[in-house]
């Protein structure tokens, strides 16, 4: 009984791969065509693609190097002690501080959270970290305050951080019943 289900899952996966491959091929063909025949919409898309590729291309490899070093050097017990179930409420504070000082947004936060989770961080701390990385990044916050005022930024922090912690707590409760795993 087990085999057909597995096969079905794999079939779905490979189908998904083909869809992605088709998207990449059609897109590249369109961009190449646009550059050859000067189609302005395609050229504009190509320009944004290149600018994002170059900005993320600088951050991502560095982020993965730091993650790799973290995985090799930081002992599991230390992560468990501060960010795991033994850490208590301090784990959330660490998660927020870590999120605040990081660069690169969600794209960097996701692989970091995966590394933390596999080193023994509890789910609610991981989700707090992910949520906070969107909201409290310090360089970005300074920028925000200069455009919208300190009051606005302070309010946004004070309201969103407790909500992020509470929702992460419930998400953990819900997911521990479901045998959830981060890749």
């Amino acid at each position: 009984m087990k085999k057909p289900i597995e096969q079905k899952g794999e079939k779905k996966k490979s189908l998904f791969k083909y869809v992605n491959l088709t998207i990449v091929l059609v897109y590249s063909a369109f961009i190449a065509y646009s550059y050859l025949f000067k189609v302005s919409s395609g050229i504009r898309m190509g320009t944004t693609l290149i600018s994002f590729l170059s900005s993320m291309g600088k951050i991502l490899p560095c982020a993965f190097i730091i993650i790799g070093l973290f995985e090799v050097w930081v002992p599991r017990e230390r992560v468990e002690k501060h960010l795991g179930h033994q850490g208590g409420w301090k784990g959330y504070i660490w998660a927020i501080i870590l999120a605040g000082t990081m660069a690169g947004g969600l794209l960097v936060a996701l692989p970091v959270s995966s590394a933390l989770y596999h080193k023994g961080a509890r789910l609610s701390v991981v989700f707090t970290f992910l949520g906070a990385s969107a909201v409290v990044r310090i360089p970005m916050t300074l920028f925000e305050a200069s455009f919208l005022g300190v009051e606005f930024t302070a309010l946004r922090w004070l309201i969103s951080i407790p909500l992020i912690i509470i929702s992460s707590h419930f998400l953990e409760k819900y997911l521990t019943k479901k045998q959830f795993d981060i890749k």
Binding site: L49, F52, F64, I65, I67, P111
Partner: peptide
């Protein structure tokens, strides 16, 4: 070992990353 891990993690996410860039543009 760290560099090999970094490379593996990077390759793992590369396809979704490309799709995301296409979506952005």
């Amino acid at each position: 070992k760290a560099v090999i891990l970094a490379y593996k993690r990077f390759i793992f996410i590369l396809p979704s990353f490309l799709i995301m860039l296409i979506l952005i543009s």
